[in-house]
Nucleic acid binder design. Structure first.
Lengths: 344, 344
DNA sequence: GTGAAAGCGCTAACAC
DNA sequence: GTGTTAGCGCTTTCAC
């Protein structure tokens, strides 16, 4: 019935509670007589002692729990990010609470309260949209560390990818391949990731005297990519490539094209952004921009631990896939099918 | 940075910490001046105070967390049971930790250690097989309440279903419908649920001078039901019904029959046990025995809270489905197809 | 190198 | 009805 305490261990080992505590916390580096330590260890073993977590937390004012609050754990990008966060936390002996706001700002706000009550030591935060500022301030006032990942939030350190640059590079790539009539399916308004990618894309086109045929707004889900691609394909038959704000939506584009009998990549080029899906999941292999999601998670967690308040922009990498072959009559060998299909 | 404490709330409200504590814990029933309570509430609100969980736990020697340790959360029976447990816990303001031992006695044993370290207040336990007694004793010695659910374990209170009676009733039902050459696919050896159902079944047959054509051992998964049904159907072509130890295995039987071109229910009757799947999940509707899984979870949790050390057997109910139609020539109307098929 | 003592923030007797 | 007091089990200065 009764719990074994540090005092009993100390008594059995013939030392003071402080000494036991030192052993427990690895604060015995060099300065402790090996035999003392051994006696303590033996006593712990003999009594089957487990330190009372609550007492520790109360004393240290740390729970040893960090959280990652994200919009959608079923999105592979976020799950990879979460794994990165958890890996660094684990290395530090911390537990990670994964909280899925389910793309709902309300749920997100609720989670702030829960996390506050749980007394988490820090939070890696991927906001749904514009987060509830009042709640954020409350957390900050409590001394909870917050690092934003993947997206930017005013006044918080953010670890993000070079979305603008990556998107511009992707656009350049498509133009160099001969694509001219490009449609863009962007992510949600107000999400920095989506805005940056759109902006980089538009800027690159502009530099070549081009403008997107059309720009639509999705929500980074496969479903929305599918729906918007159907719209684009039926309303703008001249489009020669659709660029999506992430890979999930790009896959939605592939599915829509398939269902509408549009051949990919012969008739329509498709590109995405993220490159976190298993390489062979879809065919043709998607042209995309690789974002280091796992490393982003790790970096965010590191900054949380350091208490750093500076952001970081991680480099991205263009991945040329089969979903955007060279277009137009200037290629070697036979006339690409793409040309035939322009009358679609 | 600093945490608001109960003292500050007390000071602002012009009362003592105990009074604040009383309000916090709802121990003000009747005996507290309403205006006092109101002042306290106002102070809590004003300071945005949240009680420190760790201090509470330390003082009360309760974590407010209970666990359910089960073999397979993907088994609908267990997930329903878990929901029952969690629902009662929630009503009492407790959190429920769901631990999946993944049908592995080793994992199960590991979980005992984890739960011990977590300091859970109680455990609803659905053992994989014969549990590790040494570990169980350790937990008990720590004063952790344990209630076994669905299965029996020597020396612990168990909430279970009337498996023996239900299974006997099922067998009686099949015999009354004209089935005579019955095969039985049982659950794992040493699991009381499996043994009781098999025993009830065999006893009922015996009472009619019958014996099972064959008895096999599965592990309550759809997969094992499938594999064993294939064996039975190829080795014992005379069987006119297969009874499985649970619905999941019964569905495996349906799939096996399907793949082998055996018509159900015309050629072969099939019955299961549990009745926790969505009613229309499979066709034909399965003859089975309804076990109140959710209520079983609730009852187990209630006993855990009461600290009761008595077990309980819950009643079950025979569900006559389409998977075991009346068999033989004595039915009204046209000759059942089943008769034709006896030559299989 | 190790011990003594002072709390972390809360609740539960026990006073009044 | 409400306040006072004494810890829950641990870590951490500060002595020695």
């Amino acid at each position: 019935m009764r719990r074994v305490t540090i005092r009993e261990v100390a008594a059995l080992a013939g030392v003071s509670p402080s000494t036991v505590s030192r052993v427990l916390n690895g604060k015995d580096a060099g300065h402790m007589r090996p035999e003392t330590k051994e006696r303590v260890l033996a006593a712990i073993e003999a009594l089957d002692y487990t330190p009372a977590k609550a007492a520790r937390i109360l004393r240290k004012k740390k729970t040893g729990v960090v959280a990652i609050l994200l919009p959608d754990i079923s999105n592979p990008f976020f799950s990879l990010l979460a794994r990165g966060v958890a890996s660094v936390a684990f290395e530090q002996g911390l537990s990670t609470l994964i909280c899925d706001s389910d793309n709902s700002p309300e749920k997100e706000t609720q989670y702030w309260d829960i996390l506050l009550a749980e007394g988490v030591d820090g939070i890696v935060f991927v906001p749904v949209g514009r987060p509830n500022e009042a709640k954020l301030k409350r957390l900050l006032a409590r001394g909870v560390g917050i690092v934003v990942a993947d997206r930017r939030v005013e006044g918080f350190p953010a670890v993000e990818a070079d979305n603008r640059g990556g998107s511009a590079a992707l656009a350049e790539h498509l133009i160099s391949l001969g694509y001219r009539r490009l449609a863009y399916i962007a992510g949600p308004k107000g999400v920095s990731t989506a805005e940056d990618r759109l902006a980089g894309f538009a800027r690159a086109l502009e530099a070549h005297g081009l403008t997107p045929v059309t720009v639509r707004r999705g929500d980074f889900t496969l479903r929305s990519g599918y729906a918007l691609a159907r719209e684009v394909l039926s309303q703008h038959r001249e489009v020669d490539a659709i660029v999506a704000g992430n890979d999930l939506m790009a896959i939605g584009v592939l599915r829509a094209a398939e269902d509408m009998g549009v051949e990919i990549p012969e008739t329509l080029g498709v590109a995405g952004f993220d490159h976190v899906l298993p390489a062979d999941l879809v065919r043709p292999r998607l042209t995309t921009v690789a974002v280091p999601a796992y490393e982003m998670g790790r970096e965010a967690m590191r900054r949380l631990l350091e208490g750093s308040d500076e952001g970081k922009v991680l480099p991205v990498k263009l991945i040329a896939g089969d979903s955007t072959p060279k277009r137009g009559g200037d290629g070697p060998g036979k006339e690409p099918k793409a040309v035939k299909s322009q009358g679609r």
